[in-house]
Amino acid sequence: MSKRVPRVLIAKPGLDGHDRGAKVIARALRDAGMEVIYTGLRQTPEMIAEAALQEDVDVVGLSILSGAHMTLVPRVREALNASGLNDVPIMVGGIIPDEDRAPLSALGVAGVFGPGTSTEEIRDFIERLVAAKDANG
């Protein structure tokens, strides 16, 4: 019998040093029974893609508070695709202005979570992603 545990990479690309949000999410997902690979601050897109591949994660969560999401997210997506991880979804948390949500979705970001999002919402979102992935084999 298979014992599936969702695996989530939580990474902070770019240069801002505010990792409290990332840690709160990591902790909440742990409490939701998920395995969270936490890679810490100042990750390059290449480092994120490498970790996502080696850890075989179901989703990559990026925490960005610097405002650089419109440059960082496409670069992470490219790095993931270059590693053959086209099927690994990205979710973004942080300070994301409403007008950037549509362009981020167009880049293939599966979910955008701004301030005030409940941790339950993020947990449910990941559980749905994982269920959909497993249903597609």
Binding site: V5, R30, V36, T39, E46
Partner: peptide
Amino acid sequence: FSGGAILGDRIRMRDLSGDSGVFIRS
């Protein structure tokens, strides 16, 4: 309690990133 985990060992292994001769799994 939850069956979840935070796997944080990679934080200390940044020096090894980008090296195709290394494979890290948590």
